[in-house]
Structure formats: structure tokens, C-alpha cells
């Protein structure tokens, strides 16, 4: 069983002081898949990833990562996992080559020089290998970090918001590379805030305030939602949004340029609520399945109510 699973943990719990950051978190990730980790800031994504790679010891719960016990075999896990931190955490005052060389030395790689050469070549940074890492742009820093994380040929890659603040082209290149690595058998767990990135994952897990709210393929997560959505297209949807907001049956209204997403859990109530507006000229109404984002916002609603109420 565990031979086919890269990550197999159950009921991981971690508190910092009185605050429970991760509460009974369980996950089984098969080898060679790309899993997305979503959730608002402070939902426990980083803490969970840190527990998986042995940086933090869970208060309770148990499990294995690559077949190694996360409590007792942290050293073995660290050898076989590549962990890319949220913030660029290589040395800005070291050159590209020196950073990679440092990593190769720490992992005591036998073919250190060749591995570093290859990594630099793959990055396409042969000309700039003596450049200090601190002078690289955000996109390049992130590519360097990825190269350093996979230098020791790990079996599992844990990426903590790797593409935050990176331009779309660089993000796309980055994801292409992730899928290439997965095709070679690497398992990837990546946390992100971007919906388009979530849609590129085999499975997604939605975490909020330490608990898993939804999991599965994108289709499954959307399908499991009780949300009904109408998409309105028109010139002045903003004014319409203001009118719809707060009407009984309408749970959330969001504007996306010239389109409007109007959603509610009760399909009948939603239809009754929008009925008076459907005849209005200049707007086209279409019943649709909610977007991933609509679903996530909806999932968060009870928590928001709890926080404000």
C-alpha cells in the first residue's frame, strides 16, 4: 500500500500556543501525481508542508513520507525530499553556481560538479553562473530555487507557494517543468493561491483554519459543491451587482469585468431572487456551473460569518 503512496499521513495536528493551526489532517498522495494545496492565508498550508518534510514535529497523528516515518525518520525524509520555501531561501550573496554547489555538498553528492553543471545548463544560465543570486529577477530566482531543490534528485517535491509574485509567462514555464518532472515519476505537492494553477493539478485539497474543506479533482470539488451560479454578461454589471447583493437566495455576487457571477445554494430561491432583473435590457443571463473560485469563496463563508459574527 505505502509502496504506491508518496505521502500517507493521518490525523496530523499541530498547535502553536493555544492556536490550533492544523487539525486532524489526513492525506494519501500516490506517487507520480501533482497535488495542489489551496486555502486562505494562515490556513495551515505551510505548517502542514513543514510537518511532511520533518521540519516540524506534529503534536499528534502519524504517517509516512516516501515510506519513512515522519516522526522518527526525519533525516531520511530530508535526504529524499526537495522543499522549496515560500520566500526565496538561498543565498543572495552567493553566485548561482556557488548556491548549487553548496546544496550539492550538503547532500554529499558523488557527481557534484557534473550535477551542478547540468543544473546550470538546464536553467540556461551558463553565461550568468557567476552572477550573484540576489541580482536575479523574481522569475529567475524561483527557477534557481527549483533547480536547487531537485539537484539531489528527490522523489518528492514540496513547493510552498512557488509562483507568488511571478509573471504569467514564468508561471506557465514553471508549471510545464513541474509536469515534466511528474512525468519522470516525481511526486509534487504544491500550495498556491492561483485558480489556474489549481486547475493544472491532478488533485486539489482545500484547507481552511487547519481543516480540509474539500478534496478531489477540480471537477469533483465543483460537483460536490451545492452552489448554483448564474453568469450575467453586460455593460454595467457593477450597478446590477449592488442591487443583487444581499437579496434573499443570493449568497455571493462577484464582478469579473463585464461578467457577473451570482451564486446561491438554494437554486429555487436564487431563481426567484434574480427573476425581477432577468428582463432588464442589456444583460445576458446564463445558468452555469460555479467556478473553482466561487466554490472556494462559498466554502469559506461559514468561517467568515464566524469571524465577523
Amino acid at each position: 500500500m505505502s509502496g504506491a503512496l508518496a505521502i500517507d499521513v493521518s490525523e496530523l495536528t499541530k498547535s502553536f500556543g493555544a492556536r490550533k493551526v492544523v487539525d486532524k489532517f489526513s492525506i494519501q498522495v500516490p506517487k507520480g501525481q501533482v497535488w495542489g494545496f489551496l486555502g486562505p492565508n494562515g490556513s495551515g498550508k505551510t505548517t502542514t508542508i513543514r510537518m511532511l518534510c520533518g521540519l516540524l514535529l506534529p503534536d499528534s497523528g502519524s504517517g509516512t513520507c516516501l515510506g519513512y516515518d515522519i516522526r522518527k525518520q526525519a533525516a531520511l525524509i530530508k535526504r529524499n525530499v526537495g522543499y522549496m520555501t515560500q520566500k526565496f531561501s538561498f543565498y543572495e550573496d552567493l553566485s548561482i553556481r556557488e548556491n548549487l554547489d553548496f546544496v550539492a555538498r550538503v547532500y554529499e553528492m558523488d557527481d557534484r560538479v557534473r550535477a551542478v553543471d547540468q543544473a546550470i545548463e538546464r536553467l540556461g544560465l551558463v553565461e550568468r553562473q557567476q552572477q550573484l543570486a540576489g541580482t536575479l529577477s523574481g522569475g529567475w530566482k524561483q527557477r534557481l530555487a527549483l533547480a536547487a531543490c531537485i539537484l539531489h534528485r528527490p522523489q518528492l517535491l514540496l513547493l510552498d507557494e512557488p509562483t507568488a509574485g511571478v509573471d504569467p509567462q514564468a508561471r506557465r514555464d514553471f508549471w510545464d517543468e513541474i509536469h515534466q518532472l511528474a512525468a519522470q515519476g516525481l511526486t509534487v505537492l504544491v500550495s498556491t493561491h492561483y485558480m489556474d494553477e489549481a486547475e493544472r493539478c491532478d488533485r486539489i485539497v482545500y484547507l481552511a483554519y487547519g481543516t480540509v474543506l474539500a478534496r478531489g479533482t477540480v471537477g469533483e470539488v465543483i460537483g460536490a459543491s451545492t452552489l448554483n451560479t448564474w453568469i450575467v454578461t453586460g455593460e454595467d454589471v457593477r450597478a446590477l451587482a449592488g442591487e443583487l447583493q444581499g437579496r434573499p437566495g443570493v449568497d455571493q455576487v462577484s464582478v469579473f469585468g463585464v461578467t457577473l457571477h451570482v451564486s446561491g445554494t438554494d437554486a429555487g430561491a436564487l431563481e426567484r431572487a434574480i427573476e425581477p432583473y432577468r428582463a432588464r435590457a442589456g444583460f445576458a443571463w446564463k445558468k452555469s456551473s460555479p467556478s473553482l473560485e466561487d466554490v472556494f469563496i462559498h466554502l469559506m463563508a461559514p468561517f467568515r460569518a464566524r469571524l465577523t459574527g
Partner: peptide
């Protein structure tokens, strides 16, 4: 401060 400690700790050091 620079966040590199987390990386050091994640490596087999």
C-alpha cells in the same frame, strides 16, 4: 532574518 535558515534545516544538516 533572510529566511535561509528554514532551507538549512530542511536539508540533511
Amino acid at each position: 532574518e533572510r529566511g535561509t535558515m528554514e532551507n538549512l534545516l530542511a536539508m540533511p544538516l
